[in-house]
Amino acid sequence: MALAAFSWQELAQQVVSGLASGGIYASLALALVLIYRATRVINFAQGELATLTTFVAWSLTNHGLNKWVAFPLTLLIAFAGGVALERVVIRPVERAPVLTVVMLTIGLLIGLNGLTAWIWGGETRSFPSLFSTGTVDVGGVAVSYADIGVIGVTLGAVGLISLFFRFTKLGLGMRAVAANPETSPLVGIRVGWMLALGWGLAATLGALSGILVAPTVFLEPNMMQAILLYAFAAAILGGLESPLGAVVGGLLLGVILNLAGRYVPEVGGESRLAVALAVILIVLTIRPSGLFGRTVGRRV
């Protein structure tokens, strides 16, 4: 099979659309990292949570709500749902070994998946995009509005979250809990609520990634399963403890997958998953702490 002729314009297009899917991986990866940093738990239910909330968004728009109202409302619902889930399901096992909690999130994955299929059925639905179709010419490269929009929204969300962590008292409290959960209560921080807040933010980011990805992959109960795997790969690539790493890892992975799919003949749509797995394996062998793994040791 001969390669199609190479052109710089096309390369640039591939990079931009890679960044767009990367932005989606980045927001879900950031969700994983927020919870992992605070509790060492990988939340396997993060993808299903995103799917469920995306279905909520679909129902809201389907009942005639404008998407500019429905989507922000969905984010609020996701936040409240994340907080509630932590308080009700995770809190009772707060002191249990990490493995127990991880098993519980796997249980949640299965439960939420079943719940979604039970409420909305298994069929595939189309989902309204936030952005208009069409492309805009950027220096000779045709870039779709959707790609620009997805990149803009994810970077905006990530920016807001980093401002929150940096400049608010709650953000300081959450960083403190991630850095030292034993001392945190000694300065008056309510650790349990910080963890719940983390779940709320993570669920919100997940909902955002679901809303952004649903127009292209279509809405169905298993929609986020591959995306979650990409998000894992992104988080591991960037360093599971680093929010910045999750974002950079996500964007980078999006570009890698897109370029591999276009320029490596063996990598078709289906084998993108294999590329993501390869990325995970390579990072874990060469640099287990990821690109942005922390430099200051953690006291154990």
Binding site: L172, R175, A176, A179, N180, I189, G297, R298, R299
Partner: peptide, 14 residues
Amino acid sequence: GIFRELSVWDNLRL
């Protein structure tokens, strides 16, 4: 009980 990864100033503020 230092918050090792946080800045000196954040430790004080906490």
